[in-house]
Amino acid sequence: MSDAEAARALAEGHLVILPTETVYGLAADAGNAVAVAAIFEAKGRPRFNPLIAHVADAVQAEAIAVFDARARALAEAFWPGPLTIVAPVRDRDRVCDLARAGLDSVAVRVPGHARARAVIAAFGGPVVAPSANRSGRPSPTTFADAVEETGAFAAAALDGGDCAVGVESTVVSVLDGRVSLLRPGSVTREEIEAVVGPLDRDGEGHRSPGRMALHYAPDAPVRIDVVEPRPDEILLGFGPGVGALRWSLSPSGDLREAAANLFRRLREADREQPAGIAVSPIPAQGLGEAINDRLRRAAGFVG
């Protein structure tokens, strides 16, 4: 299917599996409450969890959100790319109440994947596109996994190759004169602070997607920070000489490689139906903050 055909499907109220650089999304017209409700139904997603409005450029972003100078600075520094900005909503019709979970703020980003931007530009407005998995499951980072998870609910599915980043976008709020990190991702805390200065420590996490306690979870129970796995567990290793190479998140100990492999390895391990999945310790600095956040949620802890 072409990008123009996918845009027409969105305009007709259908769902579309859309590639982004972070994970594959299940997309719908952000202003169509019926289409947005279909996403919640397909995913089995709690309705109080807000969705991200994906737009083609910063002009579209400021049509639906009120940006101050710091929000603009972040957009200029990191868009297109894996950063979501939560700001006061400007146009409540273009991003419906259901998509915003009834909040007076809206989460918005310009994806780094060229095909995603092309579809959104052809559609002509914001598109919500939460990860194309059933709620709580590991996010799909390959086309095949996305189709396996929610393909039955989509009128179209676009193959954009494997996702380059592999974890969902960093989410920051720019509200009431404060900038807070709501969800870590591949744009790190340090990179954000280099643009806007020290972050406020009292962010409102309910304004961000992906903040459920049990999230990104396979069927098998997950244990984290494991040095000695149990005999009946699969160990997802990190670093030289840790575990079987087949299951390693990064044999060299590279955090970006580990992030790109994280959800794929969780899915592959889960297909083996082990008694459990153990994960080696991951350093907490830089991108490791985002990886550990996803792992804590997969293990059932609030991060």
Rank of each mutant, 00 (worst) to 15 (best):
P229T: 09
V110I: 13
A63L: 10
V34T: 14
A11C: 06
P231C: 10
P240Q: 11
R265I: 11
R265H: 12
D57N: 15
P138F: 05
N133T: 10
A77E: 04
D159S: 06
W79E: 02
R47V: 15
L255V: 15
Q285L: 10
A65V: 14
G239K: 04
D57G: 11
V34W: 11
S139C: 08
H54T: 12
A116Q: 05
E5I: 13
D293Q: 04
A298V: 12
E148H: 12
A220N: 08
A4D: 13
C96I: 03
N292A: 09
I282E: 01
L158C: 07
V127G: 02
A37D: 15
E5L: 12
D97K: 13
F78P: 00
A11Q: 13
V106T: 06
A299S: 15
V147A: 03
V172N: 00
D225T: 09
G237K: 00
D219E: 15
R134E: 10
K43V: 08
R271Q: 13
G125R: 04
D232V: 05
Q285T: 12
P19F: 01
L182K: 04
G253F: 10
D176L: 04
P88H: 01
A65C: 10
V128D: 01
V86L: 00
T150M: 09
P140F: 03
A217Y: 01
D293E: 12
G124Y: 04
A71S: 05
P221M: 04
P111Y: 06
S280G: 07
V55L: 08
L181M: 13
